[in-house]
Nucleic acid binder design. Structure first.
Length: 572
DNA sequence: GCCGTTTTCGGCCCGACTGTTTTCAGTCG
């Protein structure tokens, strides 16, 4: 029997656990940082890293060297790591949970284990309740109260491992930014952090500001009615948690270093570390307060990010690219792509109406699309809901609407299911009559990956299919992507000209950034879609565009930056 | 453990805040 290879997420988890246990064991900090870097690289890779390692090619990924490549191969062959097994014998696994309690860390967890015999989170709770924590050297009453408060929190808050969907938190961030900006002490206020980079999920919501009176602005921030808890508070920085569990960081500095602060607080951490290491090699020390020439001690501050990047020898890097995934090298060489922008996108090629499972009528959806400036919109209701002549009647309704409307072209599209045998749930004649055909998998998610791969390839080969909808089927945090060979799928889609979708639904964002980047590099045409089921849902096109930008895509690589007439010629 | 237009050895970003300390370690991002 063939053992299936461990998936990237599984590999990453093993290395994260290895790093955690090494940290509890008191290992060299740089060594475990290396494991964590490697885990992050593995997690974000669009191709199977286990396969790469078995072929001896995993070292192509930066952060993975010979040792870790061998360990990946060991995991792929045996399903476990000898190093991990040895550590598990020495260090109680439950200490990892103890270490994760906010305010505690590896050093404290180890101390509690040695001093009190605490090996699990439950034992930690019991020790705190018995008042034992304050007796441990270096700990006090405050720490004990923090631990008790952590366990006393409502379970949903305590178990919320923190990551919220980008699409659901963006409106809150925008509201907080405008709330702060209206305070008299505020000079400039901006979103920052992972929200500004548009990562698919975010843990903390970062806001930065310059202010005439920083203390006043921070006071205003921590006393907002939506603030449930003040986690930290100092003269330039505060952290609060809202009643909905969202965690906000605000940081304030003088206006002259706004560029330094915005860059620092936008991250990512990996991007900043790489940028600073490179700066150190050039005799410069970079922090949020400026760039210091180490030899002279002279500090230069920048009011804008553009000045900062220029000072360090880079072109300005769009926030969506700041993941240390080649952007610094490209920015130094002047080869950064000109990323697609929302205004380049001329229409939406995947929306639903109440002809199937949408909430709005055809007329409402089209009016809303025109309102957003779309020049065309493809109505792609589910074929299975358009039986018995309804598909034809909808086509007539669309034709009638086109006759009355100015400024937007309504396309008669359809979303068909790719069935278990690879066939579509609509006949060829009906498919040929539609302007735009999206084919998607909506069933059989637990079928063997090879089956799903065959279904996807069959749809890609189909002459009347224009685009594959949500190609990997993932639901963020709820359903893993199909374990299929994406490289093979991208290769075939590139050959047939079948487009692949970046679906903008907040819990899908499918393809994801690294996959879309790889697809486009393979010559695949990408469509950005809202998959809207309501008028408001049309806004998810923005999320799809953000994802496309994170995938390094230019306007030329995105199908729906072109006029419909041009797409239609190519599609048929 | 990784990595290299100063290095295959000796480095590895930088600062803020908290709690427990009378000068700092641990944690966090």
């Amino acid at each position: 029997m063939v053992r299936s290879l461990p998936r990237n997420a599984e590999l990453a988890e093993r290395f994260e656990l290895l790093a955690d246990l090494l940290e509890l064991d008191g290992a060299d900090a740089f060594r475990l940082a290396a494991y964590r870097r490697a885990a992050a690289r593995i997690r974000e890779s669009a191709v199977s890293v286990a396969e790469l390692a078995l072929e001896g090619k995993a070292q192509r990924l930066s952060g993975i060297g010979g040792t870790i490549e061998q360990k990946i191969a060991e995991l792929a062959r045996t399903g476990d790591l000898e190093a991990l097994a040895k550590l598990r014998q020495r260090i109680p696994l439950g200490l990892v949970d103890v270490m994760r309690v906010p305010g505690l860390g590896p050093k404290t967890a180890r101390k509690l284990w040695k001093e009190l015999g605490v090996e699990t989170a439950e034992q930690l709770r019991a020790a705190a309740e018995q008042g034992l924590l304050r007796g441990v050297p270096g700990l006090g009453e405050k720490t004990e109260q923090n631990v008790l408060a952590h366990f006393a929190r409502p379970p949903e808050r305590a178990s919320r491992d923190g990551r919220a969907l980008l699409g659901t938190v963006l409106p809150f961030v925008e509201a907080v930014v405008s709330e702060l900006a209206s305070h008299p002490a505020a000079v400039r206020v901006s979103e920052a952090g992972s929200v500004r980079r548009r990562t698919e999920t975010v843990r903390d919501l970062d806001v930065i500001a310059t202010a005439t009176d920083p203390a006043a602005l921070i006071e205003h921030f921590v006393t907002r009615p939506w603030v449930a808890e003040i986690v930290a508070r100092g003269p330039t920085k505060a952290t609060v948690v809202g009643h909905d569990g969202l965690r906000f960081d605000l940081r304030v500095v003088p206006p002259e270093c706004y560029g330094n602060l915005l860059q620092h607080f936008t991250g990512s951490k990996d991007h900043n570390v790489a940028l600073r290491e490179e700066a150190v090699r050039r005799g410069l020390s970079v922090s949020e307060y400026g760039v210091e020439e180490v030899a002279t001690g002279a500090v230069t501050t920048m009011a804008t990010e553009q000045e900062l990047y220029a000072h360090l020898g880079y072109a300005w890097i769009p926030p969506e690219l700041r993941e240390n995934a080649g952007e610094l090298e490209a920015a130094r060489a002047g080869t950064l792509p000109v990323l697609v922008e929302r205004r380049d996108v001329l229409g939406d090629l995947h929306v639903h109406t109440d002809w199937s499972d949408g909430k709005a009528t055809l007329e409402q959806m089209v009016a809303a699309a025109r309102e957003r400036g779309h020049r065309y919109v493809a109505i792609c209701d589910h074929a299975k809901r358009l039986k018995d002549g309804r598909l034809e009647r909808q086509a007539e309704a669309i034709a009638a609407l086109n006759g009355r409307l100015e400024g937007i072209e309504v396309l008669s599209g359809v979303e068909v299911d790719i069935r278990a045998n690879g066939s579509l749930d609509l006949d060829d004649e009906s498919l040929a009559a539609r302007d735009w055909v999206v084919a998607s998998i909506h069933s059989g998610f637990r079928d063997p990956p090879a089956e799903i791969e065959r279904r996807l390839l069959a749809a890609i080969e189909h002459p009347f299919v224009d685009c594959i909808g949500h190609p990997t089927g993932r639901k963020i945090g709820r359903r893993a992507p199909y374990d299929v060979d994406l490289e093979a799928i991208f290769a075939r889609a590139g050959e047939t000209g079948t487009a692949l979708e970046i679906n903008g639904q907040p819990d899908r964002l499918d393809l994801k950034d690294t996959q879309a980047r790889l697809a486009a590099e393979s010559g695949v045409r990408i469509v950005v879609s809202s998959d809207a089921h309501s008028a408001g849902g049309l806004g998810y096109l923005d999320l799809a565009v953000s994802q496309a930008r994170r995938a390094w895509l230019t306007a030329a690589q995105v199908v729906n930056t072109r006029p419909w007439a041009e797409i239609a010629r190519r599609a048929r």
